[in-house]
Design a protein around this nucleic acid. Structure first.
Length: 518
RNA sequence: GAUUGCGUAGCUCAGUCGGCAGAGCAGCGGACUUUUAAUCCGCAGGUCCUGGGUUCGAUUCCCAGCGCAAUCACCA
């Protein structure tokens, strides 16, 4: 019925005012922030003193009506665009009659173009004193509450387009995400990596143990999987001779949804020929540190998160000394200064349980004491991993980015073992704020070892997993052609944005998170 | 998938120990040439998530379902 009222207005605009409520191209627009910046107190004062002369600068702007106050012969409109808010004041005595009629009838949510000199009101509010006002899109949908905005998370995700205009911090978060992705890209390019795009629809889903989404290609009559990782294709590129490659794109995993998991999510994977997990550690540490510094500095210099956006990209390469690299994340203040903490898997394990992870008898006893299912029969290293993830991971200081290194080789089947201690793998995992941000590996490049590990892995899976987990023969063939030794990295971009933008849920950093259809 | 919580007007939220459903904002009509969540007068607005049960009577209690959230499980 609010919709009916708006439809009636729409028709009235056409019928009574001969105005078309859905407009066309408009040239010469400036942002509301730029229009506001055109205000000069001297020009305003001079015009107040002598209305016949006017040195105020004129501005033409477009925005969505956020407030509409009708005082009789004076109408105040608040417009919003992506740069901010600005008031447009419409005086009956200063505009043509149809413009005045329109101004009185505008609704919260309408898109409007206004033009006039930039001045201010008696109360000091900088505004455009309208000479003209045009409607360019009528909003037929009832708007959210103007003061509280849209709070209900379900509505915010389902109607993101409303969330975005009602809650400006939403737009700020996604602008920040865009900047972060852009910075990651520039950092990788500067470091000599080439960006590539590899298949998202794969005949064999490889590169991670996740359950894939299945689809079907009609013309070829074959099943296809949405990729769970780009890994096996990026490695083919190393075989082909590219020395450093990265890809920032979506992966799809057919698994649960929670605060840090969305079925489709963005990851950066990078591979460096003749590198190893330690060269990737250097790279990751300086990337994450630089991102955090950029954001901390932008925030500090602007004072507000809104300002941080305004100065986008500004302080990136300032090379400034020991500026604060703390960023808030919920209750935490995370310290991104270098170097990040490094702790060996085994050390953390021993610190937590009081005995080394190699002590098979104690591990089994501990597992039984803590009621790990199947503790009597399970493989030693699976028990270690279970205990570690349940208890030891919590020993990591959430406020300090931490690389956990030297994972047991037995739970890292596709990673090259450490030559000095073969029961350890050349692999690390970065944890920040209690979240796993990404792993890195020294990659296997011996095709025979790779095949053996694939086969071994496939032996242990259940029937359901067999439907989608098969050996990628073409990948093995590529390894036989010869892949240089390499370091590989996977970085969860959504989670990184959560941390840097201080958003507790992955749904707040994905524009359209998956929701059950209604 | 499990457990717990929530679901009331377009929005933000009250409320009913089981007895005719409430406010603010938004909307509609009116007043107002300097508002800042404008103000003032008046009006209208509901499948109390859905279905079943108990009851003289259910938005309220019970059961089931749906949606969302949190926690857990799954997630090299």
């Amino acid at each position: 019925m609010l919709v009916a009222a708006r439809r009636a207005k729409l028709e009235a605009l056409r019928r009574e005012l001969s105005m078309e409520p859905y407009g066309r191209r408009v040239d010469g627009l400036m942002t509301l922030a730029d229009a506001r910046a055109k205000f000069r107190e001297e020009a305003h004062a001079a015009h107040e003193k002598d209305p016949s002369s006017d040195s105020r600068e004129s501005a033409k702007v477009a925005g969505r009506v956020m407030q509409h106050r009708d005082l009789g012969k004076l109408v105040f409109l608040w417009l919003r665009d992506s740069s901010g808010d600005l008031q447009v004041s419409v005086s009956k005595s200063q505009v043509a009659p149809p413009v005045w009629e329109l101004a009185k009838r505008l609704d919260y949510g309408d898109w409007v173009v206004a033009e006039g000199p930039v001045g201010r009101t008696q109360k000091g509010e900088v505004c455009i004193w309208a000479r003209s006002v045009e409607i360019h899109a009528k909003s037929l949908s009832p708007p959210p509450e103007k003061f509280h905005g849209l709070h209900d998370p379900e509505l915010r995700y389902r109607r993101r387009y409303v969330d975005m205009y009602a809650n400006p911090e939403t737009v700020r978060t996604f602008s920040l995400r865009s900047r972060i992705v852009s910075s990651v890209r520039r950092f990788m390019e500067r470091s000599g990596f080439m960006e590539v795009e590899t298949p998202m629809m794969q005949p064999v889903a490889g590169g991670a143990a996740a359950r894939p989404f299945v689809t079907h290609h009609n013309a070829l009559g074959i099943p296809l999987f949405l990729r769970v990782a780009p890994e096996l294709y990026l490695k083919r590129l190393l075989v082909g001779g590219l020395p450093r490659v990265f890809e920032i794109n979506r992966n799809f995993r057919n698994e649960g949804v929670d605060r840090s998991h969305n079925p489709e999510f963005t990851m950066m994977e990078a591979y460096e020929a003749f590198g190893d997990c330690w060269s990737m550690l250097e790279l990751t540490e300086s990337l994450v540190h630089e991102l955090a510094r950029e954001i901390a500095e932008a925030g500090a210099s602007a004072g507000t998160s809104a300002g941080a956006l305004g100065s986008a990209g500004a302080g990136a390469n300032s090379g400034a000394g020991s500026k604060s690299t703390h960023l808030p994340f919920g209750e935490l203040s995370i310290d991104y200064s270098r170097p990040f903490r490094r702790v060996r898997y085994g050390e953390l394990f021993e610190q937590c349980f009081g005995f080394p992870m190699e002590d098979a008898a104690k591990v089994r006893a501990e597992a039984q004491r803590r009621h790990v299912p199947d503790a009597a029969r399970k493989d030693h290293w699976l028990l270690v991993d279970h205990l570690f993830e349940e208890h030891a991971e919590k020993f990591v200081d959430k406020a300090k980015p931490t690389f956990i290194t030297d994972y047991p080789a037995a739970i890292s089947p596709l990673t090259r073992p450490n030559p000095a201690s073969p029961h350890l793998a050349e692999r690390w995992d970065l944890f920040i704020g209690g979240m796993e941000i990404g792993p890195a590996y020294t990659e296997l490049n011996d095709p025979d070892v790779q095949l053996a590990k694939f086969t071994e892995q496939l032996a242990g899976i259940d029937d359901e997993a067999k439907t989608f987990r098969t050996v990628d023969e073409d990948f093995l063939e590529a390894l036989r052609v010869g892949m240089p030794p390499a370091g590989g990295l996977g970085l969860g971009i959504d989670r990184l944005v959560m941390l840097l933008a201080n958003q507790p849920s992955i749904r707040d950093v994905i524009l359209f998170p998956l929701m059950r259809p209604q």
